[in-house]
Design a protein around this nucleic acid. Structure first.
Lengths: 162, 162
DNA sequence: CATATTGTAACAATATTAGTTACAATAAAA
DNA sequence: TTTTATTGTAACTAATATTGTTACAATATG
């Protein structure tokens, strides 16, 4: 019998201790929502119900993601007879901003098995041996996401061919 | 009521239609196992029980991953009084090989919400607008994984400081 | 004050993962 | 040939994440 009391596996880089990285559709929904806001006539607000109609989901799902985008400073949400609008120029919002805003549970791409046997050379050193590569892999991915702005997405949505 | 019959969300690039990308510890366990095999005296075999002792998990978990590594041509597994040994030089196995071998359920990093409203400009074009960036992000990550070999991991395990 | 909207709790359904037990199939060794 | 250790795999549990849903209090706008 092994691992009866300890958690089965754990996180990789950058603090927090949550288990899985479960890439969700939150990221694409987040980009969708922000694109809607960016293409909305300036000054006008959008309700979660309207946005849910475009994404084709439940308004609560939109509100949950809006809450994350709000916390990241990307949007302002007004209750009551309100709605949402962007707080930054679309050219100043990158896909990495969105990714980081919505993928809260575990920002790492790789999980590590938690309790390798320290009496074994490999078990003792495998984590440190992998750390650098996995970190670089994550950075490479984030660099790509940081290279696309919401303004560019809007442009491509407006001109699908070009 | 929306989306009552269709699956809630779907995969992104490259065929297959499975739902979540749930990055597991299978990748790190796979690398751990291969590192054990690479540091094992040549000619000798390792049993799943021995490897489970180093990883600190159940032998069946090891055998499941060995099955995937075998299918990818990285190891040869012999039943009975058997065990496992590498089928390639450690310098000819990259971390991308391992990643692809074990992350079978969904090799994509990003999922897309599946049924955006086609009557909306954004809903109609958001997928295509995101496709290129997400593809490049995935390629950037894979390029990093392809840049580290099992031989390098072995080296770092043997000399943790350098 | 009336009202539309947000924020959030609570729950169901689904999926993935790690861990576990059990056992038939297999091949090496005695 | 028999014994035996090991693999391969099915079946199950527990934990967790996610999406969708209902319900309703809080809120601010008009």
């Amino acid at each position: 019998m092994r691992n009866t009391s300890t958690p089965p596996h754990g996180a990789y880089l950058w603090g927090k201790e949550i288990k899985h990285m479960q890439s969700s559709s939150r990221f694409s929904v987040g980009v969708h929502v922000l694109t809607l806001l960016a293409t909305n006539p300036p000054g006008e607000l959008l309700t979660s119900d309207r946005m849910a109609g475009s994404v084709n989901t439940n308004p609560v799902v939109i509100r949950r993601i809006l809450g994350q985008l709000k916390q990241a400073g990307l949007v302002e949400v007004r209750a009551a007879a309100g709605g949402t609008h962007l707080r930054r120029d679309p050219a100043a919002i990158t896909l990495l901003d969105v990714y980081r805003a919505v993928e809260t549970t575990d920002e790492r791409l790789f999980s590590m098995h938690e309790n390798p046997n320290p009496q074994c050379l490999v078990g003792r050193n495998i984590q440190a041996a992998l750390d650098g590569t996995l970190h670089r892999a994550q950075l490479a991915l984030e660099r790509e996401l940081a290279g696309t702005t919401l303004a560019q997405v809007v442009e491509r949505v407006r001109e699908p061919a070009g």
